[in-house]
Design a protein around this nucleic acid. Structure first.
Lengths: 229, 229
DNA sequence: TAGATTGTTAATCGATTAACAATC
DNA sequence: TAGATTGTTAATCGATTAACAATC
């Protein structure tokens, strides 16, 4: 999907794991460790050590043979690779339940990201603000993108509106979209689009449960182990 | 990850696409179509027709050569495969911003799913209810699972608590977990665990933006096309 | 030097895709 | 029968993994 401009094209799964490695590193750091081996770090994430090393190899050599990786150094490299030394401005489009929750969600307010604007088309909402962020009309998106230098759009609009809003975002100059609407978004190849499809994840679970049922495992009336442990 | 009990092991990506096919089918149905070809359906989802046919082939033969697929019939088959003819009971564990938003989120209240209980460890919340769903103490999980026949746990607790809560859920007999905490959950192989890692998705976008920047594309000060169209 | 652990290669595994025979 | 489109095979592509030489 996205072009990463490396010699070898970096798989998106690798980039995704990079951010998980970073999180695990920060945890190790909090515990006071200085150094970590690929085995320790990978173990934390249900990943093979060789996969971790392969993932890092796309970007350079960050370890010391015989020693492992310096935690602060590797963390810093990962932050750089992930672009987290910069500050990205986000617009949340669609101020419903989910949009409002994300606005207040800790994971979205980490270092590196700033929610710069909310947008909606409901006249009752436009003009007010939530958690100190102003709600603009969706038609203002092109101006906002320019004025506030917004790079990321989070789409929390209802499904029927999602495609049109995504098109508007792209036209406005947005280069990265995080889409929560259960709709496929089509965008030019230089635009990164990530889909978070909660209802679809749930259906995968449903499928799993149905299969368990077929295979004869009791579902719903489980044997609870004695809480002696 | 999950065992599906088929002759050929069904890849999880296939199951994920199945739920997207179903959604697209429902859209075609609303428009009044009777029949759809693999090319039309796949086109809607940026998927190759041969991939759609391959995905379906794991489960049976649902089309008619020369004709395509009957929309209501295929939709029904997909619902059956995905276990959506049944009703699954969900517990949302962690009644913060995200948990509350999901409670009210349309995608979680579709046919086939029912939010049967909320859980938290905050004494201020326990005992009250939200949107008509009672908030129990997290220690009640084992009883609730039995009494209310809960099969799915949605984890919206803070990261440090997530693993312990997941362990409790598994011990209580939960067979499917949808985890929103930025933590790797380890569970036995018969437990399906899906991760929704919003902060990680965001970092992938950040990486993409940083790469765009390196490759010389202006980020943040885009040329907005004239709105003549 | 001996032990540890990286970075990298090559083998394996699994998913995607094009192509086509089957058949409506 | 001719045209369309499926179901399935085989080829391709890409990601994972084991193994190991390099090197701290």
């Amino acid at each position: 999907m996205a072009e990463y401009g490396h010699l070898k094209r970096v798989p998106m799964v690798t980039v995704k794991r990079l951010s998980r490695y970073l999180r695990a590193l920060e945890k190790f750091q909090e515990k006071g460790f200085e150094t970590v081996s690929s085995e320790e770090l990978a173990g934390e994430l249900n990943v093979k050590p060789s996969q971790l090393r392969k993932d890092l190899a796309y970007f350079g050599e960050f370890g010391t043979r015989g020693m492992g990786y310096s935690i602060p150094k590797l963390a810093e490299e990962l932050r750089r690779i992930l672009g987290l030394h910069r500050q990205w401005a986000i617009a949340i489009i669609g101020v419903g339940n989910l949009g409002t929750a994300l606005l207040r969600y800790k994971g979205l307010n980490e270092k590196g990201f700033r929610i710069a604007a909310l947008l909606d088309d409901d006249p009752e909402k436009v003009g007010s603000s939530r958690s100190g962020v102003h709600i603009f009309h969706i038609d203002d998106l092109p101006n906002l993108v320019k004025e506030k230098n917004i790079q990321i759009a989070i789409l929390t609009v209802p499904a029927p509106a999602a495609r049109a809003v995504a098109d508007l975002a792209v036209k406005s100059g947005i280069k990265a979209i995080l889409n929560f609407a259960p709709v496929s978004i089509k965008a030019p190849p230089d635009i990164a689009v990530m889909h978070v499809d909660i209802s679809s994840e749930l259906k995968i679970l449903s499928h799993h449960l149905a299969e368990l049922d077929l295979s004869g495992e009791t579902v719903g009336y489980p044997i609870v182990e004695d809480n002696g442990e």
